[in-house]
Amino acid sequence: MVYLQLTAIIVEDYDEAIAFFTGVLGFELAEDSPSLTNDGRPKRWVVVRPPGAQTGILLAQADGDDQRAAIGNQHAGRVGFFLRVDDFDASYQQMRAAGVEFVTEPRTEPYGRVVVFRDIAGNRWDLLG
């Protein structure tokens, strides 16, 4: 078996990112464990994922100026993450009510309904239904 286990998102603050992904997007907090950087400083290993999914997102708190500069621009302004939901309209309305920033209006494409939003770090996502 081969599958993509994790992808990372650089964030400013672990707890704010956890609150966004679990409270706003409905992800599960799969892991939040103490860890160490390569040079021995404390950090956390924080993984969130959609309910029932195998693939998760490692929330990586920025460490240093280079990483802080990448927050919200990990894909050079392009959509880099794609969240498929069963009920597009309900998810869109719930996210709007929670204050999620949408950068486009919902539209219908051959592959379904889509709207672009930003996560807590500023990265662009497609919400797909």
Rank of each mutant, 00 (worst) to 15 (best):
R107F: 15
E109G: 05
G122N: 11
F20D: 12
Y111H: 14
D89E: 08
K43T: 07
G80S: 07
D15Q: 15
T22Q: 06
E101P: 05
W45R: 05
T55F: 14
P42D: 04
D32G: 02
R107I: 15
G23V: 09
R113A: 09
L25F: 11
F20I: 07
A62V: 07
Q5E: 15
R41W: 07
Q5Y: 11
D65C: 11
L25Y: 03
G23A: 09
R41I: 03
F81W: 05
I57D: 01
I57T: 07
F82H: 06
T55H: 14
P106V: 09
G52Y: 10
Q93V: 00
R78N: 08
R84M: 13
R124A: 13
V79F: 10
F81P: 00
G40L: 13
D126C: 12
D13Y: 01
W125F: 15
R107K: 15
G40I: 02
Q5C: 10
I9N: 06
V100N: 07
V115F: 10
E12S: 12
T22V: 10
G56D: 03
L83C: 10
T37M: 04
E16A: 12
Q74S: 06
P110W: 00
A97G: 07
A121E: 01
Q67L: 08
F21A: 10
P106N: 07
N38R: 13
A98S: 05
G52R: 08
V116N: 09
R96S: 12
G72I: 04
R49N: 05
P34W: 04
G56T: 12
F82W: 02
T22N: 04
L6W: 15
G99C: 05
I57R: 00
P110C: 03
L36F: 06
E101Y: 09
I71D: 03
G129C: 07
G56Y: 01
I57G: 02
W45C: 00
V46G: 04
T55S: 15
F82T: 06
V114Y: 03
V79R: 05
E12I: 01
G77Q: 04
Q93K: 09
G77A: 06
G26V: 06
A70V: 08
A76T: 03
M95Q: 08
D65K: 14
Q74G: 14
R96G: 06
F102A: 05
D86A: 13
G129P: 05
E101L: 12
R68M: 12
V100K: 02
F102M: 11
